[in-house]
Design a protein around this nucleic acid. Structure first.
Lengths: 222, 222
DNA sequence: GTCAATCATCTTGTATACAAAAACCCATTC
DNA sequence: GAATGGGTTTTTGTATACAAGATGATTGAC
């Protein structure tokens, strides 16, 4: 997948701003001052406003009329809700994929799982993360529903920063791999209901793990 | 639900443009000339461009860099895909609602169905449509997942112009009502799986009916 | 001392002006 | 006759200028 060069200034700004929000430079509730940001990026307010709208579209920023743009990081509740929806979307992908998946895609999934296993043995969370990503995206695509695949991919991307952390929980990688194998099995058998359920659980567990992680972090902070 | 006054010019323009696209003034593939539209709405290009971005967000127009904005009506394939996703999202709402719905919401659903029955007997598709809308939105809300409810509502809205037509198909209203009652029954019994399945089928049927409608229209045109 | 109103300031929303890229047209060439 | 090249025109993208609403402070009244 080759990243195409961004043509518009507004696009690059949106990407950079997104990065600044993800890496914590701007926190939840912060107001994003148009003129200050414009100076920072050495552009005028026009493309910067476009960038803000772009971010509002993906939910990272809330645009309040005549008030300004505010960083809007999802709180614990909204995050859990998003994971719930993610689980349902992936389940839907699995349901369709179980009927429509190609043999070559099945082979790719197997290959991804082999790499995952290697990553587990090496305790390499980064490698596992990358292969896990591949695994899921293949299923999105094999749903045979481009609209579904796009929407699912978008939410997947939005949850990325939160999903990554919970892989480091003790034993989570191995457990995840076991779940992947159950999913693959269901796909190979073409069992739509089973595939949907295993995928739903697989993602729902991620949400729960994340929830636990949040709770422990909160306790540690007190 | 009181519609709040639109504060920004760009919002009203987006709404009006949306209307112009829905009512067929602009067709699929048409390029939306910024200056011409700006003149038409008596505004400058700045708010008009914002409006276009707003519409791009909801998928109605495609923004191609340095090329312009193009109307992007979903084709038959994409429409079927969207109905498939709609079915899955509603199924998810139903799954959660079956566990979380309140007694008062159940009463509201019963009331909506009573009104639906009256509409069927009066052969009043508009009334049926309105009550049907209420029925579904209650279930979205009762999913107890605001994120899911919002996303589902957004897609629901996007499919509105296409969903409406198929109600006029012979016997569809009565069939729809029967399905509503099965859904209500599943909700009352708290049967998550059954509720999800009945809702999924209910919406999937809408997609199929719409597909048939498209096919007959196409044949009639030839 | 607290509250309210008015005014100054700041910020967003919109209009206009300018730059650069794409589309178009026509002529020239093979 | 088709294709290519250059120059013109249109159109998008960006900068700046202006208008109008929101914020905040200062002053006055109670």
């Amino acid at each position: 997948m080759t990243e195409i060069m961004e043509q518009r200034r507004a696009d690059t700004i949106a990407a950079e701003l997104e990065e600044l929000i993800f890496n914590g430079t701007f926190c939840d509730g912060d107001r994003l001052d148009e003129v200050r940001l414009a100076e920072r990026f050495n552009v005028s307010r026009t493309p910067l406003r476009e960038a803000l709208q772009r971010l509002a579209r993906s939910g990272l920023v809330e645009l309040i009329p005549r008030r300004g743009a505010f960083v809007r990081q999802p709180g614990p509740v909204e995050l859990m809700e998003m994971f719930e929806v993610m689980a349902e979307l992936e389940a839907a992908c699995g349901r369709f994929a179980a009927r429509r998946i190609t043999d070559s895609a099945l082979a790719e999934l197997r290959a991804a799982n082999v790499n995952c296993r290697a990553a587990v043995e090496a305790q390499d969370t980064d490698a596992y993360y990358a292969e896990n990503e591949r695994f899921h995206h293949i299923i999105y695509a094999q749903s045979g529903n481009r609209f579904l695949a796009t929407e699912t991919g978008a939410l997947h991307r939005r949850l990325k920063p939160f999903r990554r952390q919970q892989l480091k929980l003790r034993g989570r990688m191995a457990q995840s791999l076991t779940e992947h194998e159950a999913i693959l099995d269901a796909l190979e058998r073409g069992d739509t209901a089973l595939c949907a359920d295993t995928l739903r659980d697989h993602v729902a567990i991620q949400g729960e793990k994340f929830h636990n992680l949040m709770a422990t972090l909160k306790n540690a902070a007190e």
